[in-house]
Design a protein around this nucleic acid. Sequence first.
DNA 1: TCTTGACTTAAAGTAAACTTAAGCTGATAC
DNA 2: GTATCAGCTTAAGTTTACTTTAAGTCAAGA
Lengths: 119, 119
Amino acid sequence: MTIGEVSEKYGLTTDTLRYYERIGLIPPVPRKKNGIRDYDEKSCGWVSLVKCMRSAGVQIEPLIEYVALVQADKGLERRKDILLEQREKLLAQAEQLKTTIELLNYKIEHYEEIIPKNK
Amino acid sequence: MTIGEVSEKYGLTTDTLRYYERIGLIPPVPRKKNGIRDYDEKSCGWVSLVKCMRSAGVQIEPLIEYVALVQADKGLERRKDILLEQREKLLAQAEQLKTTIELLNYKIEHYEEIIPKNK
DNA sequence: TCTTGACTTAAAGTAAACTTAAGCTGATAC
DNA sequence: GTATCAGCTTAAGTTTACTTTAAGTCAAGA
């Protein structure tokens, strides 16, 4: 799979894919003889994982550490700790989101009451 | 209320409070004769609102527009639209969070199975 | 009176996460 | 065969949201 196809499939620009690989957020992608990236299933799996994490707001730094550990096939405990830590953050974020959505609901209701619904 | 007290109360630095006011995220705070900010209830209400929105990830730009409209006492429809738009974003974000948390749950479970629980 | 600490402004600096630019190569379309 | 298109790298630029710095004012305690 070319970088263009992967970009299409996961909704990340080719620039972002190369950037992720360069900083180690994704392990090195296999290349064809001419040096062009040829994404296999494993690489796609990484892209998919990182895309999911990033769109939830997980920071790049801990992900880089996690990916490096998996690559080196070590730090099982540490890997689990990283995941636990990130889950904690996301749970807190979900709480905050809930609070704010409720506030918005309340405010929007208020506007619905005071805006005359003609038309 | 001084800026220091407000900072304490809402967990925002004094720098951030001044920054928010400067860019119009919070309407001008009343001052004492000597120019020192003296937050009243209204100002505190704005701080509280902005703090809530920002910690859920609502962007500064739409908030600035909203605050300006409230200040000018106009744009009722537009104000409601801004709130609706932001709520949509937060709901989408909540969905993504849920997906990612589930992925993390799954992965963490996996680590719990393969890490020998000695100790 | 001196100094400490909280406050003021404007402007420059920082961090995270991309994004763009510059200057290439190599394969395909006309 | 030449143009165009996807891909390559390195390095510099951009955006968002603060943060820090510099240079000052002012009130209260030692």
